[in-house]
Amino acid sequence: MKRLAFTTYTGLTTAGLALITAVLLTDWQESVASEVFWHILWQLQLPLVITAILVGAVLAVSAASLQVVLHNPLADPGIIGISSGASLVAAGLLIVQPIQLAQGAPYLLPLGCFIGALLSTWLIYLVARRLRGAAMAVILAGIAISTVSGALMAWLYVLADAQALRNLTFWLMGSLYQTDWMILSVAGPVMLGSVVYQCWQSRQLNWLYGGETLAAAAGVTPEKLIKKTLLASALGVGAAVSVAGSIAFIGLLVPHFLRLVIGYNNRALLPACALCGAVVLLAVATLTEYLHLITLPVSMITATVGGPLLLLALYRGQWKVA
């Protein structure tokens, strides 16, 4: 088991480094003047690489720990409504004020998304607390919030003009090309902190596998642990959504895939999820860079490649256990 985890780490790190190099060297062959090359590297490709790594890592890790905390293998940041709050704010901003947004205040959108994510998480938390039951209540409240914001967004669609609709559609399906150093300097540390914190408390997450009472018996206050994990993942995912829009599927794909490979121990699983999530988005970045498909939404690629892969993993996993 230890060796398997080690091999996985090594493999993922190597793949990650290779992809980083690939992205950074995209324009190397084109024999451009070195000044231009460095400018592109510094202003475009380095932010792209950092965005891909952090967003991928935080989405995968948050989903993995949410699945444990909520006792639901289907949980991901989308299901507890974090992304839907952010999407709603983004939709509102993009559709109501598309022009001012593009010029005067470029940071209004990420900021709004972040606030939207936190607001919806807070709302879900309030509802869940009134319902008393921890796991199921959070999921139900999340679905309710998602439904409401979905409905509001449908209304916005009706009101929007064609260009705004197009912007919104692209934003909703995710893009790694909307960042710059300014946004990253704020959102980056938040995402990094969220990933580190969740990995750091992964041993206590293992105690939640047997339910809240057993976690308490094992030495941790379950309510606090759950609250902190929800907060850490909401902050991290909120930052990720405001940087890269809503990226589907990584949260569901990566943890399940890795559980089949290295097992259920969160101390090994969460760091592996961070690495794997980063590698997946780096691969997407490499693909879009080399094929010059900057306009291709990230969710389209992750879902197209990831869906069949997950199916395959599940299928083979079933064989193994049976």
């Binding site: 097992g263 259920y264 121990n265």
Partner: peptide
């Protein structure tokens, strides 16, 4: 407790 993850029993015991 109803389990939602197919953790091998030995690993489950070890977590605690």
């Amino acid at each position: 407790q109803v389990h939602s993850f197919a953790i091998p029993a030995g690993q489950y015991i070890d977590f605690y």
